[in-house]
Simulated scan of single mutants.
Amino acid sequence: MSARRILIAALVAALSLVTACSGGSSDDQAALPGGSELVKKSAEAMRGAKSAAFTMETEGTPPVPVKKATGRLSGTGDADGTINIDLAGSLQEIQFVLIGETVHFKGVTGGFQKISRSQLAAIYDPSAILNPDKGIVQLLGTALDPKTEAVEKVDGTDAYRVAATLSQQVLATMVPGLSQGVNGRLWIDKATSRLLKADLPMNGGKVIVTFRDYDVPVQVTAPAE
């Protein structure tokens, strides 16, 4: 077979593959559940969450003071973890342990100090994430025009990717300093309907929040003084 015929055969095969893939994608899209149904089921599933671990991190330079946060959350509102916050242009890492109305916190140097929960909330209150009156449940319940886009894996778990307009008022409880609504994307666990990830584009960059270890027992204890 001549080189010209080999090239033509290769092009035909490639075009056939593209056509087949395009047809499959269309069928898959039609088979996806509706976005409204998914966010409603996810809100119901999140209402029953007893605990979770979370990570919040930024890409680029979005206009929020907390640049990264990681931690564990209990259903009772206790939490522990670390916060990286921009204070007057200087990035500071703070360890926190939130028990009841008391927050134990520690910077890079020195020991733990105490502030009240309300004082922490002015900076960042991670316990609001699982609070059904403030956090994820409200975020899902107020999502506007949700559209299911695809099935993707998040850390090896099959999830529906849903695009939606998300409320600034609700998001601000989880991403302090956020001053705008967001056209974001949510990844909802296909098996459990729990929220696995939120991608929140905004001016200058984005904030990505991920969740894992739902209902794994969390025991938060005060640090030694």
Rank of each mutant, 00 (worst) to 15 (best):
S2Y: 06
A3M: 12
R4A: 11
R5M: 08
V12H: 08
L15P: 03
C21N: 15
C21L: 15
S22C: 04
G23N: 10
G24L: 15
S26N: 09
A30N: 05
A31Q: 06
L32C: 11
E44L: 12
A45M: 07
G48V: 00
T55C: 04
M56T: 06
E57S: 04
E59T: 13
E59Y: 08
T61W: 11
P62S: 04
V66M: 06
A69V: 05
R72I: 01
D78P: 14
D80E: 14
A88Y: 09
A88I: 09
A88V: 11
F96E: 02
L98H: 08
V103R: 01
V103M: 07
F105M: 09
F105T: 03
G107R: 06
V108C: 13
G110E: 03
G110C: 06
G111S: 02
F112C: 08
F112D: 01
Q113G: 15
R117V: 08
S118N: 12
A121D: 14
A121M: 11
A121H: 06
D125V: 05
I129T: 09
L130T: 01
K134E: 14
I136A: 01
G141V: 00
T142K: 11
A143P: 02
D145C: 01
T148W: 05
T148A: 11
E149V: 11
K153N: 11
G156I: 02
D158I: 05
R161G: 04
T165K: 09
S167M: 04
Q168K: 15
M174R: 00
P176C: 04
G177V: 03
L178N: 12
G181N: 10
N183V: 08
N183C: 07
L186H: 03
W187D: 05
W187A: 10
W187H: 12
K190V: 01
S193T: 11
R194N: 12
R194T: 12
L195Y: 06
A198H: 03
N203G: 06
G205Y: 03
G205P: 02
G205Q: 01
V207H: 01
I208W: 00
F211V: 09
R212Q: 13
Q219G: 13
A222W: 01
P223L: 10
A224I: 08
